[in-house]
Design a protein around this nucleic acid. Structure first.
Lengths: 337, 337
DNA sequence: AAAGATTGGTATAACGTTATACCTTCTGTC
DNA sequence: GACAGAAGGTATAACGTTATACCAATCTTT
């Protein structure tokens, strides 16, 4: 197999200088149609593919965007990724995804690797407990960064998120309107900022309406944990008739566990999820949940990144997307008596 | 904000030459402990991160591995990704994931971008209908490639896969042993090689045992499609009492649909899944399925890549992992009469 | 004490692009 | 026919590393 062709090879083949060949490849400069054609033919004949490393080093432009997310398998996140890719790939960017698995150390390594390879930008759901050194690293290396979902008040980056407090407020009000007084909040790990916001929205309604003391339970954000938590919650706090969940997977788990105990979601206990993942509509019974369109969120995110790349020196922006209540079958009036 | 530090900056700070600084950072050459310490301190102080582009250009080594997969959200794939990352990251590689969404054009763009940026290697589930030009592109540019799950007989790369024919053979035999005669195969799209293999295993048993004519139904590999297919299958072929599925999501969908129709999986119709995703064990009723450990599969895959990078000129290898039957509650004897 | 070996370090030329500045030719204008 | 301007092209110096070759001491060995 012949050596990998470089610009010089192409230029020689076409009988021009490398500078001219470069301009043709980029569609820049002033080149006559005749030479343009010669160069393009040579490039095609030699199967030439430019070396992005050299190009990006010299030009300072890198069209690779990294996406660091806390859980790649989550269907909500997967849709965000689709939204991001669709928009950015259309603009000629390469989007590559890394799963931090909410591990600060893994995340640090990954981001370090991104900086090492001088990615053009970073879309980022910071892992819980992310410390300032990671922020500093990104800032000192000047990587355009947009955080999403999780937000720290002090952070110096663009941000796209959900109106979390507002969303759980709506969810809790919905349950209160149905007549529930003992409403619990279920899901999420302790130090997450998003969760703090969501708990705030929930707690506010509990207080404003003079309902029971707020009751918050920790779990991982998956179905299994939701099932276990539901069983534990049911025995520890039998007075609870409604739950606001931190995510659909937890909610679906809770709903399943409830049915295994011979009870009916929406009748014995009402459940509101969060995210409106695809499964929410088809689970039995269909889940009432707070919906944000993850695909649209992803596109939004990508758009903010494009804006940032275009205008690197404008101050960071914060974009917040509202969630809407989708009423299905897991919420209803509390059981009589 | 200070300019991004380069090796020269570090060297100046430590009072040595860039050559020395480079050797310290790489742990190469002969450097005294004293200067080593000086350089490391300077690097740390300046938040120095080496530029991988320059390094890889000069050294010809790139520790970035790409992973192109057909569906990122699939929990099975997510576990594969975990396995791959754990092993490769421990070896100092950066693993970045791309979702081809089984779209040949998107896949071609992504792989082209990989070549542009001279990735160190590619782990790849080829999209259905992948044509030879994509294979050629990889070969002519000499990118070390390992395919997995999907395999073409002619392909010139290392491969890691599942003993697909063997697995569906076991699944079908299990159903036949229970007394089923009308067994259908459900799921997957038409031209997938993996599916062809799986159908072969299924069909062989149907013939060997003198059971009904093989019956194959196409669907997408998700829950919704499984539900729809089950409804259609039930009315079109009421004689079918058992189904071998191409994936757990389809199987779970089928199971749900069956229950919506007032029937019981494992009694009215028996269902065998494929993959043993986390949900399989906790769905109602728990799903009988063919299990392969996706995490271990991922580690295997990563190991093959490491081997390949170490010995670029050895002939391609094919590794196949067996699937084992896990009997839960969706299979049982056919209904009497 | 001279020759060789070892230790610790440096100067410099790649790697494959692109941005800049700078040449030639041509036109067209007065 | 002198001069401006445009059109088309090229030479060359970066970008930030690393590999190679080399040098200047210091330590061995005989």
């Amino acid at each position: 197999m012949a050596r990998k062709p470089k610009l010089e090879t192409v230029a020689k083949e076409a009988g021009v200088s490398t500078a001219t060949a470069s301009q043709v490849m980029r569609g820049a400069g002033r080149i006559s149609d005749a030479t343009r054609k010669k160069v393009l033919e040579a490039a095609h004949k030699l199967h030439y593919v430019p070396d992005g490393r050299a190009a990006s080093m010299r030009s300072g432009i890198n069209r690779e965007i990294g996406l660091v997310i806390h859980q790649i398998a989550n269907p909500f996140n997967a849709e965000v990724i689709s939204g991001v890719s669709d928009l950015l790939e259309a603009e000629g960017f390469l989007v590559s995804v890394l799963d931090s698995r909410d591990d600060v150390e893994r995340q640090r390594r990954n981001i370090q690797a991104f900086i090492r390879n001088a990615r053009g930008g970073l879309l980022w759901v910071p892992a819980d407990d992310t410390d300032d050194t990671t922020y500093d690293l990104l800032r000192t290396h000047g990587i355009p960064t947009v955080t999403f979902l999780r937000h720290l008040p002090s952070e110096p980056f663009d941000h796209v998120g959900i109106r979390d407090a507002d969303a759980t407020r709506k969810a809790t009000e919905h349950l209160a309107d149905l007549g529930h007084r003992h409403i619990a909040f279920l899901g999420g790990k302790s130090r997450s900022f998003v969760r703090t916001e969501r708990i705030a929205g929930y707690s506010d309604v509990m207080q404003e309406r003079g309902l029971a003391e707020p009751l918050v339970w920790d779990t991982e954000d998956d179905k299994m944990s939701g099932m276990e938590a539901m069983v534990a919650l049911r025995t520890a706090h039998p007075e609870v008739t409604a739950i606001v969940c931190n995510g659909d997977m937890v909610a679906i788990g809770a709903s399943l566990a409830l049915q295994k105990m011979g009870q009916t979601p929406g009748h014995d206990v009402s459940i509101v999820g969060f995210d409106d993942v695809q499964d929410a509509a088809v689970s039995t019974p269909p889940l009432t949940t707070m919906a944000v369109s993850p695909y649209q969120l992803g596109r939004k995110l990508a758009q903010i990144m494009l804006d940032r790349l275009q205008a690197p020196d404008t101050p960071p922006t914060v974009t917040q997307v509202a969630a809407t209540l989708i009423t299905r079958s897991t919420t209803g009036a509390p059981p009589a008596g």
